[in-house]
């Protein structure tokens, strides 16, 4: 019995370590790439070189890295805050106050998520121009405030939230809005954390829509910068890798910061 347990454990760790190596290797390669010049990157050099300072310098001086990062942060942070609020409220509305009308609109929304973005681009573009939001970061934010994906995700997560708690709060005389914000939201931290990571990532990595909406270099986000750098006849891969590392760090930091919520159970906070 004991040996069987040890063997199972060994398998589990072997599996985890394999997944770890496969997942991390490309990241190691990106880090190595940012310290090499373009030719070495193309040739597939896997060791660290001495070009890091140089690459970063090019990135900051000739590609306006700070300005670009500021744009990306501005858009992403505004989007995350807005969309968590709007989407989770909607999901709560759909799940807790079920009614025929709302279920019908929910079905329509879900269905609309399935339309490929390419089909909507031109009408949406016309709309944004009519609103006068061309080349404006607001155009990126307002269009992603209500995320069907997040509404769907929140609703699926709210399904496991015990209704008795809501009932009990009502009996205690708490208002509906108050129940949501001071009872439901705090006890669904892991869901909000996952949603925040998702929302931040989507906004930070958004590509097609910013590409079409943003017109000037001044407004550019980090994804657009990386894309334009890599389309050259002879791409400066060392610098591109540096840009990619810089672009990836914020998401990793956010993930690190929020992952503690995945560990913490929700039971504790619900019970109190």
């Amino acid at each position: 019995m004991k040996t069987k347990k040890i063997i199972t454990r060994a398998f589990v760790y072997a599996f985890l370590i394999a997944a770890f190596v496969v997942s991390v290797f490309p990241f190691y390669w990106m880090l190595a790439g940012m310290t090499n010049n373009a030719i070495d990157v193309i040739k597939g050099k896997m060791t660290f070189g001495g070009q890091m300072i140089n690459n970063l310098k090019v990135l900051i001086t000739s590609h306006n890295l700070t300005g670009v990062l500021a744009n990306s942060f501005k858009v992403s942070i505004a989007t995350v805050i807005g969309t968590l609020l709007v989407s989770s409220m909607a999901a709560y509305g759909f799940e807790v106050y079920e009614s025929k009308g709302r279920n019908r609109s929910y079905a329509i929304i879900l269905l609309s998520m399935m339309v490929p973005f390419a089909a909507l681009m031109i009408p949406l573009f016309r709309l944004i121009v009519r609103f006068g939001l061309l080349d404006n970061h607001l155009a990126l934010i307002v269009t992603s405030l209500a995320s069907v994906f997040l509404i769907f995700f929140f609703r699926q997560s709210f399904k496991s939230f015990p209704r008795e708690i809501i009932q009990a709060a009502r009996v205690d005389g708490a208002g509906e809005i108050r129940i949501f914000f001071s009872i439901v939201v705090p006890s669904m931290k892991s869901t909000y954390a996952a949603a925040a990571i998702y929302a931040f990532m989507t906004s930070w990595n958004a590509y097609l829509w910013p590409l079409i909406i943003l017109q000037t270099d001044k407004q550019k986000t980090i994804t657009l910068l990386i894309s334009s750098m890599s389309s050259a006849y002879f791409p400066e891969y060392g610098v591109i890798m540096a840009a990619i590392v810089v672009a990836t760090l914020p998401i990793i930091i956010l993930f690190f910061a929020l992952q503690s919520y995945f560990v913490q159970g929700m039971t504790g906070s619900v019970k109190q």
Binding site: R130, F131, G132, L133, L138, L145
Partner: peptide
């Protein structure tokens, strides 16, 4: 945010 969108439409 929403009203800003509406305003800039006018402006």
């Amino acid at each position: 945010l929403l009203s800003m969108a509406a305003c800039s439409k006018e402006a």
